[in-house]
Nucleic acid binder design. Structure first.
Length: 325
DNA sequence: ATCCTAGGACGTCATATTAT
DNA sequence: ATAATATGACGTCCTAGGAT
């Protein structure tokens, strides 16, 4: 899916291009479109540009042989090896900027990028990005055989060592088993088991094949984890399918070692925090990847535009050179 | 078949940033 | 001001691909 990159300006520098020229520069459709889109290009010119701040509004003035000028205001720094070169070529980068300004810009550019901001804007643009379930109130309910979920966001462990939590709204987070336990959490929402119905949801874990896992809900429904790829899928099925149900155990990992109540609380809080951070890190990586993809696309587009503009400029130069003769 | 290496994904910690 | 969240940095694991 392609996104505009609403916030990339901060990191790639804002882009803008204006082609104010005594000579009107006719764009072909595609370029014109993207130009109005706020794209930029930066072309080495054969006349001295106005002092160009590093990050903003470097204005390049092209003097055509007929005396007309074309101003190009661009910010993205072009490769030094621009196609158009001239004897009097001067760099577009201005050096007359105040040190304070450039320091400010450096500061801004060196700040951590907020992928959240970016994604928020992205999501407000189009579809809404599914929010990660918030976990507000947490308690651990330990039971010897059956987990009665009395409070959202409890941490449970099945007999096979798999951990899961249930948060408000019925979001169930599964974790593959193992000593490290909470790795590889998956979130899903149980429409029928949903809601913080105290004591209403009983989960039973029934290992089946190596590829599927099932949870028996108190309503008689069965939650089946299908064979997974990157994104596991789950189905809630009717109880009609006779399940080989396994032992059910649900207890907080901390409770299993029976630590003192206070230590248990601390452990539980830590687990919840780690779990949240794990999810956050995953989401952050996802956003970052999306953002980088976005930037790469942008680069491709801008490179194309740069090429086109350079060719146009060449053509115009040719035209006016011939006229001048 | 085994070893080595690069690259990707993950979890955790520390800390920057944002929300309340 | 404080809590919550997001992100950079680091270490670990896994996998694919190449060299031996």
């Amino acid at each position: 899916m392609e996104h505009a990159c609403p916030d990339e300006a901060l990191y790639v520098n804002a882009r803008s291009i204006t082609m104010e020229a005594v000579v009107s520069v006719q764009q072909d459709g595609s370029v014109s479109d993207s130009l109005t889109d706020g794209e930029s290009s930066q072309i080495n010119s054969d006349s001295s540009p106005s002092p160009a701040p590093l990050a903003q509004s470097g204005v390049t003035v092209f003097q055509l042989p007929g005396g007309q000028t074309v101003q190009v205001q661009g910010v993205i720094q072009a490769q030094p090896a621009s196609v158009i070169q001239s004897p009097q070529q001067t760099g577009v980068e201005g050096d007359g900027d105040s040190a304070v300004d450039s320091q400010k810009r450096l500061e801004i550019l060196s700040r951590r990028p907020s992928y959240r901001k970016i994604l928020n804007e992205l999501s407000s643009d189009s579809r809404s990005v599914p929010k990660i379930e918030e976990e507000k109130d947490e308690h651990v309910v330990a039971s010897s055989s059956v987990a009665t979920v009395t409070v959202p966001t409890s941490i449970y462990q099945t007999s096979s060592g798999q951990y899961f939590t249930i948060s408000q709204g019925g979001a169930l987070q599964l974790a593959s088993g193992g000593a490290e336990a909470l790795g590889g959490l998956q979130t899903l929402t149980l429409p029928s088991a949903g809601g913080p119905q105290a004591g209403a949801t009983i989960l039973q874990y029934a290992p089946q094949t190596t590829e599927t896992s099932q949870f028996l809900l108190s309503g008689g429904q069965v939650l089946v984890q299908a064979a997974t790829g990157d994104m596991p899928t789950y189905q809630i099925r009717s109880p009609a399918s006779g399940l080989p149900q396994a032992v059910v155990m649900a207890a907080s990992p901390g409770a299993m070692h029976s630590p003192p109540p206070h230590a248990e609380e601390v452990t539980r809080k830590r687990e919840v925090r780690l779990m949240k951070n794990r999810e956050a890190a995953r989401e952050c990586r996802r956003k970052k990847k999306e953002y980088v993809k976005c930037l790469e696309n942008r680069v491709a587009v801008l490179e194309n535009q740069n090429k086109t503009l350079i060719e146009e400029l060449k053509a115009l130069k040719d035209i006016y050179c011939h006229k001048a003769e």
